[in-house]
């Protein structure tokens, strides 16, 4: 039973979320393009190997001074710290999400571990959508910003660095048309 529950982590789910209405269907779940988090995690991944490099360079000296065990212990703390830092970044990445359903668009922004902002926009309030792609990397990897103009108190929703913004724009426009029919 426990093994089965664990293995279910690696299969697709129906992307349900807290606050989802009964008749509401999730159309798209958007997070920032994977390049954004990979570049950050890559940097941390390189830094995690710094103790190995130091050990290679100063191993002889550390052994002569009977400091090798202390060095290994400090290296282990270094790796614990960067392991936690990598997954802090991945947590922030995973929890910053835009959910597009057949009724509304929900933006959940995790601004820190104990700071969260949730914005909601009903599809009937959508007036205008524009896509903005800036620079070589965004153009090559096909990600950019999606700006949604609304008839709500909050005039504009901007979803930054999302993959395939043109496709997302088309999906939202189709949902808006369906909503009005």
């Amino acid at each position: 039973m426990t093994l089965r529950s664990f293995l279910e982590l690696f299969t697709n789910s129906d992307n349900s979320f807290e606050g989802q209405e009964e008749s509401e269907k999730v159309i798209l779940i958007l997070r920032k393009h994977i390049f954004i988090i990979y570049s950050q995690v890559f940097l941390y991944g390189v830094l995690i190997f710094v103790p190995w490099a130091v050990g290679q360079g100063f191993g002889g000296f550390l052994s002569a001074q009977a400091l090798m065990h202390l060095f290994v212990f400090i290296s282990s703390l270094w790796m614990l710290f960067f392991w936690a830092a990598i997954f802090y970044s991945l947590t922030m990445y995973s929890l910053n999400v835009v959910i597009i359903t057949d009724h509304r668009i929900i933006e959940s922004s995790q601004l820190g571990l104990f700071k969260r902002k949730i914005s909601e926009l009903h599809l009937s309030r959508v007036q205008d959508i524009s896509v903005r792609t800036d620079g070589i990397i965004e153009t090559a990897l096909k990600f950019g910003d999606l700006e949604v103009q609304t008839a709500s108190e909050q005039r504009e929703f901007i979803f930054r660095l999302i993959p395939n913004p043109e496709h997302v724009k088309d999906v939202i426009m189709n949902l808006v048309v369906d909503n009005h029919l």
Partner: peptide, 17 residues
């Protein structure tokens, strides 16, 4: 971090992390 990923994560990606 585990609490945030399992409680607020949507889909299987946060749970895998």
């Amino acid at each position: 971090i585990l609490y945030h990923l399992t409680r607020f994560g949507i889909g299987t990606q946060p749970k895998r992390y």
